[in-house]
Amino acid sequence: MARAVTPRRKMLNTAVAWIIGLLIFFPILWIVILSFKTEGDAIRTPLGVLTSGWTFDSYSVVQERSDYFHHFWNSVILSVGSTVLGLVIAVPSAWAMAFVPGKQTKNVLMWMLSTKMLPPVGVLMPIYLICQSLGLLDTRIALTLILMMINLPIIIWMLYTYFREIPGDILEAARMDGAALKEEVLFVLLPMAVPGIASTLLLNIILAWNEAFWTLNLTAANSAPLTAFIASYSSPEGLFYAKLSAASTMAIAPILIMGWFSQKQLVRGLTFGAVK
């Protein structure tokens, strides 16, 4: 694959790539550093920041404000809930389209994708009013359902591209071996589909966790996830760098780690299988 290059050349590549990589990563690194500083140290000159002492104070302050965990918990419920719900609906659909393709399958898939293209702001008013009239504004239920709906096309597509890679022969073999539909799904399809389902789950939790249109517009104190909670720092509180950094670090850390695990799936998931 990669051709042999001179050590000098490799050293140069390494240096350039690391410098650029660190520059891109720097803002994240910076908030992690600031989160371990006192408020006073956090607004000092960069050199002053680096040479000052370390402290966990900001984390304990953010932790003491119990509403942080309230919002963290909202984020968990919304992202996991909407994704799991979406999977329950999408797995049978994707299974059927991958293994029993009909003349309309392609059109149905394309149409499903097209619903994803609807700009959220285009339907903001009706959704807002529907939620209002049902008393669902600022509730987790409404937001879970909405996040499920906006990610459902992606979930179906990802599962479909994974399922399509499972050879149909194997399912037919199971049928010949006497497996009924239930057993075929349980013993053969699901075990083979688990990696695909897992990556779909991971990517969609990330997407739901970071969703910041509906979560900002349909929530207030009660059901606001971290996206909306962090946004409340936008005015005066934003000047408390250390606390903002600590809260931000805690908001992005779980997703950053999940994201690093799902790099590969990210590409095929977000390009709907067009790039693998």
Partner: peptide, 14 residues
């Protein structure tokens, strides 16, 4: 009836 497939169709996870 039992069938042997061209691709063998073995269950990869078993």
């Amino acid at each position: 009836l039992a069938m042997v497939f061209q691709s063998y169709a073995l269950y990869p996870h078993m």
